[in-house]
Design a protein around this nucleic acid. Structure first.
Length: 771
DNA sequence: GACCTGCTGCGGCATG
């Protein structure tokens, strides 16, 4: 599918375009079509199937899709929309609208933006006379299905193409399940399903992407990729150590972060750059430090924060300033500037904290070095605490340092995570069931099942589990649905309320917030849970404020400029998962003794410390280690594997928690732990549904709370089905060699984990085989 | 010890 095209074939692609599209291409002053564009043109114009376009942000992906798509639909007299473009962000839709408007106008095709902030007149005009293109969010598609089914039918009944931008954003997580389900429902409205085209810069697993794009026939999805390589990378990883000073005053804290800010200020001033800060709180802290440095040096500030809690106005101002490029600008941001919002190219990218995901790192790197011959520049700043005398085992092995090095090594190999299995399947199916009932004004169970549970996100849900879900939804506690005498399912009392609420359209949760206002202008918002009182000093939007008034009823906090302050706390959430491959690479870094050329002296010291601790504890030969009352199980697998192991151990009564590379079991009975591990290795997960007795551990979806616990366990079991073999492989290295006097002495006759009494009196569960 | 994302329909009013 990706054999080289001859130059005549490449040139021939241009001739396949509509004459007016060809004129537009000439008017752009392009030297020619990119190879990826030519390939996509041939696939779309010459074929009938679906298409994945995998290429970096700057490679002209959008044009690769739209030049041939618009050529296809330009002169066709169609009733209804011809093309639906779906994007995960409103900002992306606005960007694309600007880029498509001119070309579409020349072709006589109408383009309409369809999201919550888009002009309503164009939307209602489109419903009256559906034609051309619509650029839409998944939630707006949902709103059409559940609130205006007649409009949905009119709009989606004759689609020729569905283009999905930033496809990787939909491969994992509930929002992807949601969109995939909506795509099935769109197909069901059509006499002939629309062709699907997925666009992405970072696909770790093309087969998984194809399976998402067309679950009924993934093998027929054609792929067009941009040639690998190209731009080079300049790289530095710098280490910083926060001194241990229990008596430090406020001004003496955060010394490591201050040193990072000093370095950022010296290196980035005068150019456009992005600094990924890791959390909103740290983004605010660093932006505040950098602004302070500029003031002290008597130079204009060019460092500004950007995160999801800042007002749209502040964010757009900064995006515009970056894009225009008249004044040197650095955005200190969270992942907000990771997706393809148009901010032009930046000179360099910095990241504070070791990366946790290669997909995200690659996406960030794609913001730098986008022009030919210009290298991408990446700086990673790793922060570690000085080791206290009583430092924990996990602190001593310097996991952050090791992860940074492992991640860069995987970056060099071109590794990107494949999407992991999805949580919250039951929650999503409950939601879509209600949505279908809204759409049809009532439906039979078989109809809903056929519509939702064919090839796609719910394919693994068999009829008995679906019926259990329906019974749970219809139960006296839930009252989400009820059954009419003729068997048709209708919304129940609670179902009406839920489906009628504004909160129904998205499959992800959102929390209540205070709005922060100064001089009548909105700066952004902070969670309602943040403790704020009049007189408090806060850092927000890169500036310092004093809280003048907190108005409970309107949920508005009024602030005035001030000289001091600290950033507010934002809500806690679970950390980004570390992939199995990254955890395994961390083990490889511990086991090796090479020192990369791209680390500084402090980083080299940290690396050395981590490896020495690792060897001192003999973690190269044992996977289980007793430390104080805890037993550390090092699986060298990622977050999801460890999370599953922790749930399975938790179900057996152990109290434990998972971290990036293993599980810590608190005060276990050692022989029972050994027995349990042996069971898991021999049988995997014997009875999945019996395992998760405590439903809170497996309740992750937005609507999981509305599902009966027994049914929720059924869905959880589905989600981890594929991980059963994995758990056996995860546990296997934790098994030591059988037999041995020391085990007998503890009264364990067939326990697979050897318990060792060390000379210093500490016990250890060891993993074999012993050297 | 994270981050991000989304949002109807209609009544009432002013205006052309």
């Amino acid at each position: 599918m990706n054999s080289p095209l001859s130059s005549s074939e490449l040139a021939g692609a241009y001739d396949l375009l509509h004459p007016e599209v060809r004129r537009w291409v000439r008017d752009q002053g392009w030297a020619g079509l990119r190879e990826i564009q030519s390939r996509a043109i041939r696939e779309v114009r010459g074929g009938e199937g679906d298409l994945l376009v995998a290429a970096s942000t700057a490679a002209g992906k959008t044009e690769a899709a739209f030049l041939p798509v618009l050529s296809e639909v330009a002169d066709e007299p169609v009733r209804g929309l011809s093309v639906l473009y779906v994007a995960p962000l409103k900002a992306l839709i606005n960007d694309q609208f600007g880029r498509l408007e001119d070309l579409c106008e020349r072709l006589g095709l109408s383009v309409v933006r369809w999201h919550g902030d888009a002009p309503a007149a164009a939307k209602s005009g489109l419903v009256k006379r559906p034609r051309g293109l619509a650029l839409i969010t998944p939630e707006s598609i949902e709103a059409l299905f559940s609130r205006r089914p007649a409009a949905a039918k009119a709009l989606f009944g004759n689609l020729r193409f569905i283009v999905i931008d930033e496809l990787h954003a939909f491969l994992a997580g509930p929002r992807g399940v949601h969109l995939a389900s909506l795509l099935r429902r769109i197909d069901s409205l059509a006499t002939k399903p629309a062709r699907r085209i997925g666009l992405s810069a970072t696909l770790g697993d093309l087969n998984a992407a194809a399976a998402w794009l067309r679950p009924s026939a993934p093998g027929n999805v054609q792929t067009v990729r941009s040639p690998p390589g190209g731009s080079s990378l300049q790289l530095q990883v710098r280490g910083y150590i926060e001194p241990f000073r229990p008596q430090a005053t406020e001004d003496e804290k955060d010394l490591a972060l201050r040193a990072v800010a000093d370095h950022l200020c010296g290196t980035l001033r005068g150019k456009n750059s992005l600094v990924f800060g890791g959390s909103r709180r740290r983004v605010e802290t660093v932006a505040d430090l950098l602004r302070g440095l500029c003031e002290r040096h008597n130079v204009p500030n060019e460092f500004f924060p950007h995160h999801g809690n800042l007002s749209k106005e502040l964010r757009e101002d900064l995006e515009r300033r970056l894009k225009e490029g008249r004044l040197p600008t650095t955005a200190v941001c969270t992942s907000t500037l990771e997706l393809g919002i148009d901010i032009g190219s930046v000179a360099s990218v910095a990241q504070i904290g070791a990366p946790r995901s290669l997909s995200s790192l690659k996406q960030r790197l794609g913001r730098s070095g986008r022009r030919a011959g210009v290298p991408a520049v990446l700086r990673v700043y790793v922060l570690e605490d000085e080791l206290r005398p009583d430092a924990s085992l996990l602190d001593q092995i310097r996991q952050e340092t090791i992860r940074a090095i492992a991640a860069i090594r995987l970056l060099g190999e071109g590794f990107i995570e494949a999407p992991s299995s999805v949580d919250g399947l039951g929650s999503a199916l409950l939601h879509q069931t209600l949505s279908v009932i809204c759409e049809r004004g009532g439906a039979r169970a078989e109809t809903i099942y056929r519509l939702l549970c064919g090839p796609g996100p719910f394919a693994s849900v068999k009829p008995p589990l679906f019926m259990d879900l329906l019974r749970s939804m219809g139960g006296p506690d839930a009252k989400l649905i009820e059954q009419a005498p003729d068997g048709v399912l209708m919304l129940g009392e609670a179902g009406e309320r839920l489906a009628g609420s504004r909160d129904f359209f998205a499959l992800f949760t959102s929390s209540d917030e205070w709005r922060i206002v100064t001089g009548g202008r909105s700066l952004g918002s902070i969670p309602i849970s943040s403790p704020v009182m009049a007189g408090n000093l806060i850092v927000f939007a890169g500036r310092r404020w004093i809280v003048r008034e907190v108005d409970e009823p309107t949920r508005i906090i009024t602030v005035d400029p001030h000289k001091g302050g600290t950033p507010p706390t934002f809500e806690d959430s679970t950390p980004e998962p570390v992939d199995d491959r990254l955890a395994a690479e961390m083990l490889a870094v511990y086991m090796g003794d090479d020192q990369p050329g791209w680390i500084d002296a402090t980083m080299a010291r940290l690396l050395d410390e981590g490896r020495k601790s690792f060897r001192r504890m003999e973690l190269d030969t044992r996977r289980a280690f007793r430390s104080g009352d805890d037993v550390h199980l090092f699986t060298w697998r990622g977050t999801r594997s460890n999370g599953l192991l922790a749930i399975l151990l938790g179900a057996a009564g152990f109290s434990c928690w998972a971290h990036d590379t293993g599980v810590v079991v608190s005060r276990p009975n050692l022989s029972q732990l050994a027995t349990r591990l042996a069971e898991l290795q021999s049988f995997g997960v014997p009875n999945l549904e019996a395992v998760a007795a405590d439903v809170s551990a497996i309740s992750t979806g937005k609507f999981d709370g509305l599902i009966a616990p027994s049914v929720l366990r059924g869905f959880w079991a589905l989600g981890v089905q594929g991980a059963v073999g994995d758990i056996q492989a995860t546990v296997a290295p934790l098994q030591p060699i059988a037999g041995g006097d020391d085990m007998e002495s503890l009264g364990v006759t067939h326990a697979p984990a050897a318990i060792e009494q060390r000379p210093d009196g500490r016990e250890e569960v060891t993993a074999g085989p012993q050297p």
